[in-house]
């Protein structure tokens, strides 16, 4: 990391997941029991916060670079282009058929191999993805990279060559300090993601996207994908459904029905 002035030259790697549009309902593949991921992928909304945070921190540092890192099938770049249009400088994409079926740890190994050569000062990710929502990938990644991590960030600031992070807790929040390099996961609302401008969208088309395979990254193919996940889905069944009960139309007296119900169940 080259410090010019206090922060200039900060390099931020932002993990961005490209996912099927959550507005279209998913389905399970009947033979593999995994989520079907065909069709176009888009930028996971949750990761727009990391992209914005990265852009703002590089600004605050007086310069540097925001590099996107994504693992996705079929050399998909739809979501990356959105983030590049927001202002990220370039992207590293890992795409390989051998990666189909990767679990969170497998994904973290791939992301670690892609991020290690970047020499990033900070790695950003979302607290959890919209489609997988394991919320473990970023911390697994931090452990593989030997970095400290602060998750559930509500606010991130540069302070004295390191970070000061406001971290969500059950009781409120903690103020956490952390030296760089580090990994931080951000919650929705940490910053307000900008909309790509027309100029941004046009410019994004020419920004570099380096595509890597498993072999390029020097990863063992057996450690990735289905075999690397070392977990199997045993069965899939409909769950017990709650049944709808009584529905009453309010004629100015519905509060009485609620009181009677609360009395019946001994809450009143």
């Amino acid at each position: 990391m080259e410090w010019v002035g206090e922060y200039a030259g900060m390099k931020v790697a932002v993990c961005v997941k490209q996912i099927p549009d959550p507005a279209t309902p998913g389905r399970l593949d009947p033979t593999t029991n995994t989520l079907v991921r065909d069709g176009k992928l888009i930028l996971d909304d949750s990761d727009a916060y990391g992209v914005e945070m990265g852009l703002q921190l590089v600004d605050a540092a007086g310069g540097g670079e925001v590099v996107l890192v994504s693992m996705a099938p079929h050399r998909e770049t739809g979501g990356l282009r959105t983030a590049l249009a927001m202002g990220a400088d370039r992207a590293v994409l890992v795409s390989d058929d051998a990666l189909a079926g990767s679990d969170a740890l497998g994904t973290a190994k791939v992301l670690a191999a892609a991020i290690r050569p970047l020499g990033a000062d900070l790695v950003l990710a979302a607290t959890e993805s919209t489609d997988g929502y394991t919320g473990t990938t970023p911390v697994q990644l931090a452990e593989l990279l030997g970095l400290p991590s602060v998750t559930f960030a509500k606010r991130v600031e540069l302070e004295g060559g390191g970070l000061r992070v406001r971290r969500q807790t059950e009781a409120g929040y903690d103020e956490v300090t952390c030296p760089l390099p580090a990994l931080v996961t951000v919650t929705a609302g940490v910053v307000e993601p900008r909309y790509p401008s027309f100029k941004g969208i046009m410019g994004a088309k020419n920004k570099p996207v380096d595509v890597h395979t498993v072999a390029d990254l020097g990863l063992d193919p057996a450690a990735a994908g289905w075999s690397g996940a070392r977990q199997v889905i045993v069965d899939v069944a409909p769950s017990e459904q709650r049944r709808a009960g009584e529905v009453v139309e309010d004629q100015g007296d519905a509060h009485q029905a609620i009181i009677r119900f609360l009395e019946q169940i001994k809450v009143l």
Binding site: A104, L105, Y133, L141, A142
Partner: peptide, 20 residues
């Protein structure tokens, strides 16, 4: 908050998958 982090750290450290 803390245990999701712990699960991630343990998983990577022990090289074991985790079901969340």
């Amino acid at each position: 908050y803390d245990q999701r982090d712990l699960a991630g750290r343990l998983s990577a450290r022990l090289d074991r998958p985790v079901l969340t």
